[in-house]
Design a protein around this nucleic acid. Structure first.
Length: 213
DNA sequence: CCCGTGATTTAT
DNA sequence: TAAATCACGGGG
């Protein structure tokens, strides 16, 4: 593998904190997926925070505890993968402390390793920037589906995060905006809970504006 | 802009 | 049991 081996894997303490902090700190880190002997990876360039019981846009709004959102009630570091619109999967990383059903949706990656495999899995993608520029796209490119719902990313070898930087990116390089596709959530739809690396070509549309803290 | 697509949720 | 919903993506 072309890895240096010195890369540090995100541990429990990385995830056991405020979801907004996790969402910002995930930017610039690496998501790794191992499947059938192939290691695909990408740099996380776009995230959204979901704040749990009080957040009308969250699947756990109002304390809902259903079969689908079961893993969102798990402790930080677990994956929450769900199926939506009859054909797509979306992947979240559970954050917060125990019994806080909060999570971070991974919305886009800058593909890094095995882009050939990603193109094979996503024939509709004509260009590299179409591979992982959306929550459903990245799941398809990385072979992430409901079989990975509930896995512990701190200990599982199939899906995990590698830390490429110890610090969060400089605040001015993080673009902030309202979350995508949650118009049903009333005032919560306007909250600035979407984060992206400013100027990165792999961020999904519409792009949040840079310059917001 | 519209529409597929089907599991999940929510209303009867 | 039935109806509505949906943290999306692709094509026109």
């Amino acid at each position: 593998m072309p890895e240096s081996g010195a890369t540090e894997r995100a541990d429990r303490s990385f995830f056991n904190r405020d979801p907004v902090v996790v969402a910002r700190r995930l930017l610039g880190q690496r998501l790794v997926r191992r499947y059938r002997g192939i290691r695909t990876s990408g740099i996380i360039v776009e995230t959204e925070a979901y704040l749990g019981v009080a957040d009308r846009a969250a699947h756990t709004y109002g304390g809902r505890h259903t079969r689908r959102n079961r893993s969102m009630w798990n402790i930080g570091g677990h994956a929450y993968v769900y199926f939506v619109y009859g054909m797509h999967c979306c992947m979240n990383v559970v954050a917060g402390r125990a019994e806080q059903p909060v999570a971070v949706l991974l919305r886009a990656l800058q593909p890094e390793q095995r882009m050939d495999t990603m193109h094979r899995r996503r024939s509709a993608a004509r260009r590299d920037v179409d591979l992982c520029s959306g929550p459903g796209k990245l799941c398809q490119a990385m072979a992430i589906d409901r079989r990975l719902d509930g896995v512990d990313m701190v200990s599982d070898n199939r899906l995990f995060v590698e830390l490429l930087r110890r610090r969060q990116l400089p605040t001015r390089t993080i673009a902030v905006g309202p979350r995508v596709g949650v118009d049903y959530a009333g005032e919560w739809a306007q909250e600035p809970l979407r984060f992206a690396i400013a100027g990165n070509a792999h961020v999904s549309r519409p792009r949040p504006e840079a310059g917001n803290s």
